[in-house]
């Protein structure tokens, strides 16, 4: 698994994808945080990072799909899947290696935003008047959302050998799992079930973690979605042998 992980990280770094993803992410978040009129922290006047945590999942939907679309589609198209799967490595370690590489890349994208946190902290009145607990919670929530997107993206990539299809399937599935349940829950047609439905989506859990409350149920939710998609990927990946 570690070998695959290192290889994936290296290929991200050597093929510009990593830089493009990180720069686009920071640029988009930076614009929303500091420049765009309705969302920038300076005009709103609260010392928090809400614009970042509101926009980041939406940016992630596209960026994660872009970094995971190659993962299996490209190997299948190039045929390198054949050398990989005839080497003594299990399917699961290939998948996990790729998964953790994707998560690491997201981590790289998130780390520079600490500068935003420090800036807001310095701008606050009095200096340092900021809810660090909630912000830490939001970071953890964001990383979990990102990791779930990676597992979804890998699944999308495993069912096709065309990167564009993988990208489109992945963005749709990410969007669906992130907010579709939330909106369906707001339809208010199913009575008490609305609450259950909105809890099936990531948004409710993300919001809950963002408040700074680390509930094991939320963590468990994200982990189970990740495990679900990794197992699904493994099944699809193993289906070449059927």
């Amino acid at each position: 698994m570690f070998v695959i992980y290192i290889k994936e990280i290296r290929s991200f770094l050597s093929s510009l994808i990593a830089y493009i993803v990180i720069i686009t992410f920071l640029l988009a978040i930076g614009l929303f945080m500091w420049i765009f009129p309705d969302t920038n922290v300076l005009d709103i006047g609260y010392s928090n990072l809400d614009p970042l945590f509101f926009v980041a999942p939406w940016v992630f939907i596209f960026l994660v799909s872009a970094i995971t679309m190659r993962s299996f589609a490209d190997e299948k198209r190039a045929g390198t899947i054949e050398t990989l799967t005839t080497s003594p490595v299990s399917d699961l370690s290939i998948i996990l290696g790729k998964f953790f590489a994707g998560v690491t890349l997201l981590l790289f994208a998130l780390i520079p935003t600490i500068v935003y946190y420090l800036s807001v902290r310095y701008l606050a009145y009095p200096v340092g008047n900021i809810d660090s607990g909630a912000i830490l919670g939001s970071y953890i929530g964001l990383l979990m959302v990102g990791a779930t997107f990676v597992s979804i993206g890998m699944f999308a990539s495993s069912i096709t050998d065309n990167q564009i299809s993988a990208f489109i399937i992945s963005t749709f599935l990410c969007f669906f799992f992130f907010s579709a349940f939330h909106y369906l829950g707001e339809l208010k047609v199913l009575g008490d079930l609305d609450y259950v439905i909105s809890w099936l989506g990531m948004f409710a859990h993300y919001e809950s973690i963002s408040r700074g409350v680390l509930d094991t149920r939320d963590a468990f939710y994200f982990l189970s979605v990740i495990v679900f998609f990794i197992l699904l990927t493994k099944t699809v990946f193993g289906s070449r042998k059927w």
């Binding site: 290929s11 054949e82 050398t83």
Partner: peptide, 11 residues
């Protein structure tokens, strides 16, 4: 094993 199309990571 050397597969038929000789797949390699070109980058």
């Amino acid at each position: 094993y050397l597969p038929e199309q000789n797949p390699l990571y070109l980058d």
